[in-house]
Computed example of a mutant assay.
Amino acid sequence: MGLRGLRRRGRTDANTAAGERHTTAAAVELRGVRRSYGRGAYAVHALRGIDLSLPRGSFTAVMGPSGSGKSTFLQCAAGLDLPTEGSVRLGGTEITGMDENALTRLRRSRLGFVFQAFNLLPSLTVEQNVLLPMRLAGGRQDRARAADLLARVGLEGTGNRRPAELSGGQQQRVAVARALVTRPDVVFADEPTGALDTTTAAEVLGLLREAVDALGATVVMVTHDPAAAAHADQVLFLAGGLVADRLPRSPATTVAARMTTLTPTPQAA
């Protein structure tokens, strides 16, 4: 069962939330973002000036060779790391100058995360894992919302089970439900299918795709897999800490071919 059963209510909820969070703003906006580690001759310039704006209700894949800046991009865009220079806005909110407490509150209430390693807490039930962002944010734990999402990701009736009782693919489905439970401004996914077989990976990617199409979610996914990137509305290619190229939604073969020719080029502001 997909997520489309939540389309009408999900869009209403998403629109209400967006109205409270500056509807005209992009979901993710980076301006002049640079990130360096170390100093002088030993400095590593992971990001060299990223300028981009990602609209609400879009699915963006980020690709690039090892060392291209993908992970640093995700960390800076999600407020997990601070840029050396530049500005990051999420859902219309400037996060660059926020203190750590404010950033933590924002991440808990307005961002969702899906990781390669699932990151479920083994001591909690499936339902408790899904509700964890609500609990950490100090809000009401909406058990009906959790049950609804678990049903939509094909895990109806599993709420009382522990993660260890589920397959890897099922655990990643729980992680997707957890990422969506607070109706976040953005879901950041870091190699979400890296630990899954091809069939299960396609199912999880289909869930992320439906979250965008049916619920109006915004997904930003770092991946090395052209087949995964083919589910996105656009693919951003990073090379040398710059946005080297973009593709609109394209088949995996086209994405893979573009990956083989990447060279860093200065981007327009």
Rank of each mutant, 00 (worst) to 15 (best):
A257D: 12
T260P: 08
A239W: 11
A244E: 03
H231Y: 15
A230C: 13
Q234M: 09
L238Y: 04
R258Q: 15
A252K: 05
A244Q: 03
L238P: 07
R246M: 09
R258N: 15
P251T: 11
G240S: 03
P266M: 00
P251E: 14
T260Q: 13
R258G: 14
F237Q: 10
R258H: 14
M259K: 04
L247S: 04
T265L: 07
T253P: 13
A239I: 11
A257M: 01
T254D: 14
M259D: 08
L236K: 03
V235A: 13
R246E: 09
L238M: 12
S250P: 15
A228S: 13
V243A: 11
F237W: 08
A230E: 13
R246N: 07
L238R: 05
A230W: 09
T265I: 10
L247V: 06
D233Y: 03
L236M: 09
S250D: 12
R249W: 01
T254C: 14
G241H: 08
P266A: 05
A257H: 07
G240V: 03
V243H: 00
R249P: 06
A229H: 13
A228G: 11
G241S: 10
V243S: 10
T253C: 08
T254N: 13
P264K: 04
M259F: 01
G241M: 09
T263Q: 06
P251Y: 04
D233V: 10
S250G: 14
T260Y: 02
A228H: 02
R249E: 13
A239N: 11
L242H: 04
F237L: 01
T261F: 00
R246C: 02
M259C: 05
T265R: 12
F237T: 00
A229W: 05
L238D: 07
S250Q: 14
L247E: 05
P264M: 07
T260N: 05
D245G: 05
T254A: 15
Q234G: 09
L238T: 08
P248V: 11
L236S: 10
A228K: 09
F237D: 03
A244P: 11
H231V: 02
L262F: 08
T265N: 02
R258D: 12
L242S: 05
F237G: 09
R258T: 15
V235K: 01
T253E: 15
V243L: 12
A229M: 06
L247G: 05
R249H: 11
A229T: 06
V243C: 08
Q234V: 02
T261S: 01
A257S: 11
P264T: 11
D233Q: 09
L262H: 12
V255M: 04
T254I: 13
F237I: 04
A252D: 06
L247F: 00
A256C: 00
L236R: 01
T265E: 08
